[in-house]
Amino acid sequence: MRILFAGTPETAVPSLLRLVEAGHDVVAVLTRAPARAGRSHKLRNSAVHEAAERLGIPVLTPASLRNAEIREQIVELAPQAVAVVAYGLIIPSELLDVPTHGWINLHFSLLPAWRGAAPVQYAIAAGDEITGASTFRIEKGLDTGPVFGMVTEQIKPTDTSGDLLERLAGSGAELLAQTFSLLESGQAVATAQQGAPSHAPTISTQAAKVNWQHPAVAIERHIRSLTPAPGAWTLLAGSRVKLGPVTQVPTVTDLGPGELREDLVGTGSHALRLGWVAPAGKKQMLATDWLRGARLEPGMSFDLEDAE
């Protein structure tokens, strides 16, 4: 099948590779334009951009899909379908009917659960035990289109969003390849989504801040759900500290919310043991190493008020 592939991050690369491996004709790749990254702020191509260049596939990096030039390019490519995996740009309705089979999205949830930009993060934070991936035809609504297929994945008690996304990227790539094989053979059937939807909008920096007055179990999930990105954080004496996964310590209940004692921190219920931290402007390190260097006074606490 003649396919245009639209994707950007590392989690989309397995799908691109799997479609090529399956023998589909990937005529071009749509991906986000190079962005500045790292301390050097050098422009870097997206992971999908790099993979496409290794495969010798032409790459398109429009800042928007709303201009006439990119529409003409897509029409000229004449794809039978567009595969979409974490692309990141809004697809105008006038482009949806250009390919014969439409735009087929791989979404990392069991739709209609967790429609939106951060389904894996919300599933972990909510304490879901099962999640998965879905392929569906994109329509005007946000992740509302009819579903071709699903694959399930158990959420492990220690999973970070990075861990879970890595597994879903692999199983989702297989699902996407199967969907396109069925489309090519004329056997694909898309069915309307069933059940009440839940939503997973983009997580703001402020929403990633830890509220130490919440119960320990909620904070533990919150931090795992945001590891590695966008990253959970807190304040200590007004200075930001990024936090890695923590461990619940139910036997310690005498610490107030945010109060520190060695590598323990109090919450609205019982204590948590800190894992790694990354103080402002520094690389991540074990909390025990950081605390030795920080020389905190007894009874010191992470700030409870909002950041300015």
Rank of each mutant, 00 (worst) to 15 (best):
T158D: 13
V82C: 03
S239M: 00
T247L: 15
S181G: 15
L286N: 14
T191I: 09
P257T: 11
L60K: 08
S171Y: 05
Q154F: 10
A113N: 13
G38F: 14
A278R: 12
W212S: 03
F148L: 08
L142S: 06
P157H: 05
E129M: 07
G266E: 05
G299P: 06
L165K: 14
L106W: 04
P14A: 13
T253R: 15
R18P: 04
M1Y: 10
L226T: 02
Q194C: 10
T205D: 11
V249I: 15
G127D: 05
L110H: 00
D163H: 15
G256E: 12
S239G: 00
K282H: 11
L183F: 02
L77R: 14
Q187K: 15
L30D: 01
L165Q: 14
I91W: 01
P228K: 08
V27G: 02
V241W: 02
A188D: 02
V189P: 02
L274G: 05
R292G: 05
V29K: 03
S185N: 11
Q80H: 08
L142P: 01
I57G: 09
L16T: 12
V85N: 02
M300D: 14
T227P: 02
S198M: 05
R36M: 06
V48A: 04
R295Y: 05
A51D: 11
Q193G: 07
W103E: 09
R221C: 06
